[in-house]
């Protein structure tokens, strides 16, 4: 569960990147976060995994108050969250298998477990046949699927994706969102930032719209909530 209580984020004096957002996201929800460039989508997402800290307000993730979470315990939070970036953030000198295995190796998992979980994640995104390729040798859509596999490999409770379809054409974008839907079926909360209206129309989900750092609408699947 993700809870925001009167959260503000200010980088420059008198200018708020996030302004007085209070919101609650239940476990297993699928949410689109939308808004124009500079609306505060990325800042909102970064605050969930404490890449950014609020200037004011409280954020609770699975009842854990992020303001009280020390830096040396941050890894506990991040092991519960899988993150997908628009620019994929894959290591070019590692194979696809190695890239996907990173979260598990960082957790000191045994090789047999790493093998099993990486293959499961690559199967979910349909990339087992590419596991020995390097990221630069596969297409953009496939790179994004690798990034998704890396995000889900550690069985997170929440998946956050910042513009995951930003660099992809419509068909690939739809495929990517379908993968997120499959992930969501397993009870994982999915939060995707996008400004692609086609995606929003094609996939009727709860939509949070930001404008100049403020939450201007919160539309549920069946209408305004």
């Amino acid at each position: 569960m993700i809870e925001f209580y009167h959260v503000y984020k200010q980088y420059i004096k008198n200018q708020f990147a996030i302004s007085d957002i209070s919101i609650s996201i239940e476990k297993g929800e699928f949410i689109f976060l939308t808004g124009a460039s500079g609306a505060g989508k990325s800042t909102f997402l970064k605050m969930i995994y404490k890449e950014e800290v609020p200037s004011r307000g409280q954020i609770l993730i699975n009842s854990m108050n992020l303001n009280l979470l020390p830096d040396n315990k941050l890894y506990k939070l991040r092991r519960d969250i899988g993150i997908v970036f628009q620019d994929f953030k894959l290591l070019e000198n590692r194979t696809i298998y190695e890239n996907v295995a990173i979260p598990l190796i960082a957790r000191n998992e045994k090789k047999a477990i790493v093998d099993k979980m990486v293959i499961n994640a690559l199967t979910l995104v349909g990339l087992t046949h590419r596991r020995n390729y390097f990221p630069t040798h596969v297409s953009g859509g496939e790179q994004q699927r690798v990034a998704i596999a890396r995000a889900i490999v550690g069985n997170p409770k929440i998946i956050i994706a910042d513009e995951p379809t930003g660099n992809l054409d419509t068909e690939l974008s739809i495929n990517i969102i379908k993968i997120f839907e499959r992930i969501n079926i397993n009870g994982i909360t999915v939060l995707i930032a996008t400004h692609d209206n086609n995606i929003l129309k094609l996939f009727p989900k709860r939509i949070l719209r930001l404008d100049k750092g403020m939450l201007v609408s919160d539309i549920g699947i069946g209408g305004i909530s």
């Binding site: 830096d71 040396n72 890894y75 506990k76 290591l91 550690g154």
Partner: peptide
């Protein structure tokens, strides 16, 4: 730098 930032985001401990 990039690898370190990825490791941090996927939940690696500081000592790792």
């Amino acid at each position: 730098k990039e690898e370190i930032s990825i490791l941090r985001l996927v939940g690696a401990t500081d000592w790792y």
